[in-house]
């Protein structure tokens, strides 16, 4: 079954306190080379038949992500 992946992350201008907490932990662990962390969501969709890009884009942009605060990336199967 084709697998479609959708990645959602907060827009750059929206502060991400969860990412900042992760960054703080990295610093305490001695990983001083990481400059910033943005935390997001990763959806894996098994779809039946040929993926319908328009429909999947609608799903991604209207439900999986909130366009007010989040950017979304749709990854269709590339075979």
């Amino acid at each position: 079954m084709p697998v479609v992946v959708v990645d959602v992350v907060l827009k750059q201008e929206i502060s991400d306190p969860q990412g900042q907490a992760v960054l703080g932990a990295l610093g305490r662990l001695g990983h001083s080379g990481v400059r910033s962390v943005r935390q997001g969501k990763h959806f894996v969709l098994d779809v039946e038949g040929e993926p319908d890009e328009a429909e999947l884009r609608q799903i991604a942009e209207t439900l999986l992500a909130n366009p007010v605060i989040e950017d979304v990336e749709l990854h269709l199967p590339t075979d």
């Binding site: 907060l10 929206i14 502060s15 306190p17 969860q18 907490a21 909130n66 007010v68 605060i69």
Partner: peptide, 11 residues
């Protein structure tokens, strides 16, 4: 309504 509600800044 406009805008969105997100994780508290202090978590």
């Amino acid at each position: 309504l406009p805008g969105a509600l997100t994780r508290n800044s202090h978590l």
